[in-house]
């Protein structure tokens, strides 16, 4: 009996070892934002290359940075926004890759080749680009829906039905914009005004969370919510909140640009490079946008045949030229400290 058990255990151990050895060569560990990876595209990549993709998700750039900083290894591809790409490059957290030599690189829109955050294009390939602002369910809403005032100092019809992102990094830039102060602010006086504004907004807020806005908008629990353009469009088209309007505030909107990068020590670097090239394919790049509803950084004529025509007309991603778009920068330690101080006080 005892030897029997031992034998069995041995077989299982051997099987486990064997299978992990065979899989190790054909795996790709992708760490991406929640609800940001098209399933069918992943399935297509798996059948085309025989590489198995393991997906893990996060909800903010800060979570990603903290995880990588804590020494988490094992990820082959992660998806930071432009200001975090700058940090990761300067901290030596990324692997270089021969991106300009990839066969599909020619599909990238000329404007986004060698972007300011990766001037030599050695670390990043573009994934999606979009904006951060807020959405209003116009069903029963009385207002022009064109100003940040309606988010920070909402009128009575939506008071108590507001959802705000949980990270200061996505909320404070909009507040600074509304107050007309400069971004990455190091001036305590300006930040006091931000704090006063957020504290004034708080009684109208029901939830601080960066993940549940779709469900809350769909159930009617929330009427106004922090949003990204494509996610707002998805909520309108997929989740049935037909009256949802993504606001392009006259004071300005926050722009962002997400890229695929390979973190230092990635176990399957070759597979990651295959994945990068795969994602720059015109058809695949179009499917990413068709799924996420964000604008594609690939060349418009290259993807024209594959992109959903609805997307080109969508009010969410077509911003009037009178609205200033501000791309988030990497802020100094001093301003980060002030942001955190303000945020802790707001959530006290």
């Amino acid at each position: 009996m005892f030897t029997n058990v031992k034998k069995k255990a041995g077989i299982i151990a051997a099987a486990a070892l064997f299978s992990s050895a065979t899989f190790a060569a054909e795996e790709l560990n992708l760490y991406n934002w929640v609800d940001y990876t098209p399933d069918d595209l992943i399935a297509q990549f798996e059948t085309e290359t025989g590489i198995k993709v393991n997906l893990d998700t996060y909800d903010s750039n800060e979570t990603l940075l903290a995880k990588l900083k804590s020494g988490a290894t094992g990820y082959d591809i992660v998806v930071p926004s432009q200001n975090f790409v700058t940090i990761m490059i300067s901290e030596g957290m990324l692997e270089k890759a021969n991106i300009k030599g990839m066969s599909n690189y020619k599909n990238v829109d000329k404007r986004w080749q060698s972007p300011p955050w990766d001037p030599t294009q050695e670390y990043t390939i573009p994934y999606q680009m979009g904006t951060t602002s807020f959405s209003i369910n116009m069903d029963g809403y009385d207002g022009p829906a064109n100003s940040l005032k309606e988010f920070f100092e909402p009128n009575d019809s939506v008071s108590g039905k507001i959802q705000v992102f949980r990270t200061p990094d996505e909320v404070i830039p909009l507040a600074l914009m509304y107050l007309g102060h400069e971004q990455c602010n190091e001036n305590p006086k300006d930040m006091k005004e931000v704090q006063a504004l957020l504290l004034k907004q708080k009684p109208h807020v029901k939830v601080y969370n960066s993940e549940t806005m779709v469900a809350n908008l769909a159930s009617g629990e929330i009427m106004v919510s922090s949003q990204w353009d494509g996610y707002s469009m998805k909520t309108r088209l997929r989740d049935g909140v037909t009256q949802l309007k993504y606001v392009h505030p006259k004071e300005g909107i926050i722009g962002w640009f997400d890229s695929l990068v390979i973190p230092k020590g990635a176990p399957n670097k070759a597979n990651a490079e295959k994945f990068m090239n795969f994602m720059m394919d015109a058809k695949n790049g179009a499917s990413i946008s068709n799924f996420n509803r964000y604008a594609s950084p690939l060349d418009a004529t290259a993807i024209a045949a594959f992109i959903d025509p609805e997307l080109g007309k969508a009010p969410e991603i077509n911003i009037d030229s009178s609205v200033p778009v501000h791309f988030s920068e990497t802020c100094s330690g001093k301003s980060i400290k002030l942001y955190d101080r303000v945020w802790t006080k707001v959530l006290l």
């Binding site: 903010s60 800060e62 979570t63 940075l65 903290a66 804590s70 949980r166 990270t167 200061p168 990094d169 708080k202 807020v205 029901k206 939830v207 601080y208 969370n209 980060i336 942001y339 955190d340 945020w343 802790t344 959530l347 006290l348």
Partner: peptide, 19 residues
């Protein structure tokens, strides 16, 4: 609804946003 920080949220916040 995350309107009031608890000790656990505060700790998590230090390792993410606050760095």
């Amino acid at each position: 609804g995350g309107k009031k920080m608890m000790l656990s949220n505060l700790i998590q916040f230090q390792f993410s946003s606050a760095r």
